[in-house]
Amino acid sequence: MENKFNMEFMGLSENEALARTVTAAFITSLDPTVEELSELKTAVSEAVTNAIVHAYPDGVGMVGLSGRICGKKVYITVSDTGIGIDDIERAREPLYTGKPEQERSGLGFSIMESFCDQIDVKSKCGSGTVVTLIKQIGGNKGEE
């Protein structure tokens, strides 16, 4: 099957729950297991939290959330138009955080990687960041 959605919300922490709920509702048609659902919700929560915490140091910006279902594969994209990530490799290292004073654990990208089949990160300093989470829901991983 094929389906798409696209939305935008203010980068406020209370909207993290909104992003998780929308994602969970969007993939319901694929009949995910409880584990698959909680994995994708957690990964989305990490990506959205990163956008809210890191992208807009001088205020609140908009965060984009879009999804696409293609067969059994789900693509969830979280985007911002914030400051961007200057060193993506370092940002993806386990336990690295740019904000230790805010008690960030530095586990966001590690969790996204563990809970999805693939993640793609594109970022440009001053223009923003786009994180795409790719996960197959249900059935044989080899099937489409």
């Binding site: 909680s38 957690t42 960030r104 654990s105 530095g106 969790i111």
Partner: peptide, 13 residues
């Protein structure tokens, strides 16, 4: 019912 890495950071702190 749910926790992400922000919860881990809070507990660590």
């Amino acid at each position: 019912s749910f926790m992400d890495s922000s919860g881990i950071g809070m507990i660590m702190g």
